[in-house]
Write a protein that binds this DNA or RNA. Sequence first.
DNA 1: GTGAAAGCGCTAACAA
DNA 2: TTGTTAGCGCTTTCAC
Lengths: 345, 345
Amino acid sequence: MSEPSFAPRPTLEAVAARAGVSRATASRVVNGGEGVRAPLVERVRRAVDELGYVPNQAARTLVTRRNDAIAVVVAEPETRFFSDPFFAQQVRGISRELTAHDNQLVLLLTEGAADYARVGRYLAGGHVDGALIFSLHADDSLPVLARRAGVPTVIGGRPGWSDGETLYVDCDNRGGAREAVHHLLGLGRRRVAHIAGPLDQTASVDRLDGFRDVLPETDPQLIAEGDFTPEGGARAMAELLERCPDLDAVFAASDVMASGALRVLRQRGRRVPEDVAVVGFDDIVSVADWTDPPLTTIRQDIEEMGRLMAHLLLRALEPPAQGAPGVPALSSIVTPTRLVVRGSA
Amino acid sequence: MSEPSFAPRPTLEAVAARAGVSRATASRVVNGGEGVRAPLVERVRRAVDELGYVPNQAARTLVTRRNDAIAVVVAEPETRFFSDPFFAQQVRGISRELTAHDNQLVLLLTEGAADYARVGRYLAGGHVDGALIFSLHADDSLPVLARRAGVPTVIGGRPGWSDGETLYVDCDNRGGAREAVHHLLGLGRRRVAHIAGPLDQTASVDRLDGFRDVLPETDPQLIAEGDFTPEGGARAMAELLERCPDLDAVFAASDVMASGALRVLRQRGRRVPEDVAVVGFDDIVSVADWTDPPLTTIRQDIEEMGRLMAHLLLRALEPPAQGAPGVPALSSIVTPTRLVVRGSA
DNA sequence: GTGAAAGCGCTAACAA
DNA sequence: TTGTTAGCGCTTTCAC
């Protein structure tokens, strides 16, 4: 297991020889067997089995220019990537779609901007046919890298710029936020606070904008910035309580932050939802369903968004539609959200 | 960003032409510039910059047979992989070591045995120079796949078989478990229970063995099997309390399970450590330091183990030592553990 | 020190 | 339907 294997892997040549056919025919069989007579197919198949032949990908890629592999690049410190269920769900969606189309998912981790050069080389080196990029912060250079590498890309979440050309998949953050606030107001709450995500990410900005759409006159003291971690949510909640002890509702920009906020509210003796109603965002079941009380939240279908990202990318990789006029160009996707009412509001 | 790039990437040929040298010389410069006169090096470098040349990896791999990429394969459902901090830490260690040696980490996710064929093809296809495999369960076929693919492999955790040849990195599970139990006994506890991990994994078995080394006569009722999740730990704790209400200590085979156990103990009104002392395993700080009370545990240096795995694999990939007699053969590594005392025991 | 040339293993025209 | 052949882009002897 530990030794480099010394027996060189068999080549197509060897398979062809053993089956008594030309390399071209062997290749045809290996790639599906279209247009090869049955008995030959059979012989080649047997030779493949007997020799344990597996095509050399480097050689194949060199001529086909396809890898059947897609990179997923996460612009986030590993720690958060691994601890935030959001990513896990999105990756699962991506993984499903990619696997269904026989593409390999290659996860590229970055421990910070220092790794970008390496990622850039990897992308430019032609290891993958496309890239999926997550969780961009303002001015992140990853998409530029990908573009420079000539790698088609789809971004998770609306990017900070808009060139009408960049493909992305996002949920209706702004609309969802509005719904959250409307729900709280419908409950008769009048001092609604907001725990925002990091404002260098569009998702946070969009949710804040939705909040402001409904409550344009909100006291700035009722808004605190978190960082999409439980601790950040807790910290923001503590700040808010200090600044506005009379608040009676909180809309947190993520379930994870909401869970931190709930902890602080409990510590301070505020009852939820009686004293303070709380609404989250995401509907990450493993979080929202386990808090005490269970979290009312705005649901976005994260796994589906992952699947859509992969789907969009795969379509972008297809040869440009020809002969079929009126095939719509590919465009970004914004998925709907909906309110899920549990115990916290 | 979304369009496949139509401008073909420049080749070495182009670089050579622009620099007015042969392809061979250009290649030498790109690969370090040994034995090329300075002015030529300079000209080639400039050409590379101006053209934005990046070597085509497929072509390079085809001749060198190196990818400078290592696969990390996880034999665990995605959900656990993403939610258990253990993996995150191990991957970080691996990532550090690999990056330091200019190797790319390629994370291969498996959603179950159904994906093994795909992973096998990927490995056999020669995309990577080696593989790191994690979290094996009994009879897992992943190592067999890797071997068949001819890919050198290092395994995280002692494998279930022993051929004296398979390289692995593990901590001293058995010794650590003994230390945990000794600590509890030293505290005067007399009814020590054990929450084991899934017994199809050697880490769980080894920890249980360590427990039994110290308490060979333990009532089987004092042992319950969990699954390395908080819920599993909670369930096991509930069982144990039911079966042996008089227990006064628990050694849990992981911090994550211990956190679940603590929750149950609190719910049932048992004070920790007064009524029941609890020791975990792993010392995952984000868990052990945050429980109430903070968890006394057996520390293993997970990140270091990841680093060692990568290091071992990289060494196994080096050309077999020649001319240097007495170079020791590579061997598996077992790292030490140590007790970290916090509040729970 | 530098260049010419021979492949690495495979696919895809093109001929037969 | 099958085989022949020409590369894909790169590294690496081997002459010069």
